[in-house]
């Protein structure tokens, strides 16, 4: 157990920070290399050898990162040391060695023992549960940071040449706010992860639960704000595409108010459950590690309403794109090239379909694990 504690300490202080940095860089490369390759390809075909080198670098880095992650997982699960680090298996092993030392046969009575080492292994275990969501989030945060840098460059370049009005800056401003919120979310998730190994190493009493609950609520508030803003952008785009038709605007407003209300209600309910330990009906099949929408009926309603909002907006934009294409081919003949408005609408539909599919997967994950 003491060796295990040392291995965990070393993982927390050196291996995991390196892996997180590598994960962030993976996200950055996953954004810059495809966009850079596209720009070089459009500029001149003579850049193709350079582009293929970039992709080879990306594949090598991805392989290295995936192997590092697998190696870390195998260390934390104890496979590289030849035993299981699950608390029950450790208790069995400890009891078996005690029984052997005293010449008794008590190995089948597993209990956690009284040593501080078991407490420390338990808290480390809590930290490792937060690790994989954090690694995923760090890769995506690196990806979002690169996209934000590229978007900021586009906005600055355009503001020097042509912005028609201040209204054009609303979307860049909202996107900046959303990026800031996702930065805060990542910072809190990182804090959640770093607090636990510190408690484990200090050997302090298990008072970390209150601390972690506060951080979990903060994560939920930031995420809910981002989800509501993302839905509002989707609905706003739908209204613009439908040239602000009053019925579409009204449905959009109702959906937005309902999403906002359910998100606030979900935060209130989860705060009562976590902080005041009040009883509420709960979804026992929820597989989330960071509790968001999956635990209570109110949260599930908020998540499914967001899914419905995205689906509804995508279908309406798709319908408008189809009507637009029919009108263009009717007026200028079937072989007319796609117009700018048509291309933008197609892009909105395609991205809407991808985002809706991700929300659908997310909603399924509240009831069963997606992979085995």
């Amino acid at each position: 157990a003491q060796v295990l504690e040392l291995v965990f300490r070393s993982a927390a202080s050196s291996t995991i920070p390196t892996l997180l940095l590598e994960s962030f860089m993976m996200g950055v490369l996953l954004a810059f290399i495809p966009i850079g390759s596209y720009l070089l390809y459009v500029k001149s075909r003579s850049y193709m050898p350079f582009v293929s080198i970039l992709w080879m670098v990306l594949v090598t880095m991805l392989t290295h990162w995936a192997l590092s992650l697998r190696d870390l997982e195998s260390t934390l699960a104890g496979r590289s040391m030849g035993f299981s680090t699950s608390l029950i298996d450790l208790a069995h092993a400890a009891n078996a060695s005690k029984a052997a030392a005293h010449g008794e046969h008590r190995a089948h009575h597993a209990h956690l023992g009284d040593g501080a080492v078991f407490g420390s292994v338990f808290v480390f275990g809590q930290a490792w549960r937060h690790l994989l969501p954090l690694v995923t989030e760090t890769v995506l945060f690196g990806f979002a940071s690169s996209l934000f840098a590229i978007a900021a460059y586009i906005v600055v370049r355009r503001s020097c040449s042509h912005w028609r009005s201040r209204f054009d800056l609303i979307i860049p401003a909202m996107v900046s706010l959303m990026y800031t919120l996702s930065l805060i979310h990542w910072a809190i998730a990182l804090r959640c992860f770093t607090v636990l190994p510190k408690y484990a190493m200090s050997g302090a009493p298990l008072s970390f639960q209150t601390h972690i609950k506060g951080l979990d609520i903060s994560l939920l508030i930031v995420f809910s704000l981002n989800a509501v803003m993302s839905d509002s952008i989707v609905l706003w785009r739908m209204c613009v595409v439908w040239e602000r038709t009053s019925s579409v605007r009204m449905i959009g407003a109702v959906l937005l108010i309902a999403t906002l209300g359910l998100n606030i209600a979900n935060i209130v309910v989860l705060h009562r459950i976590m902080v005041y330990t009040r009883w509420f009906p709960r979804n026992s099949r929820d597989s989330e590690i960071i509790t968001t929408y999956g635990l209570t009926p109110v949260g599930l309603a908020a998540a499914f309403l967001s899914l419905a909002t995205n689906l509804f907006a995508t279908v309406l934009v798709g319908t408008k794109a189809w009507i637009h294409r029919r009108q263009v081919s009717h007026q200028f003949g079937p072989k007319t090239r796609r117009t700018l408005a048509g291309r933008v609408m197609e892009l909105l539909v395609e991205s809407g379909v991808v985002y809706t599919a991700i929300w659908l997967l997310y909603c399924i994950s509240f009831f069963r694990q997606i992979t085995t």
Partner: peptide, 30 residues
Amino acid sequence: LVTAVDHLDGAMAQLTSIYPLAVFILIALD
């Protein structure tokens, strides 16, 4: 990918901000 799909609770906060950013850049590139 398996890690990402199994841990959408960590990923969704980032994906909500990636979505509008990606659409903005794709329209600008187009």
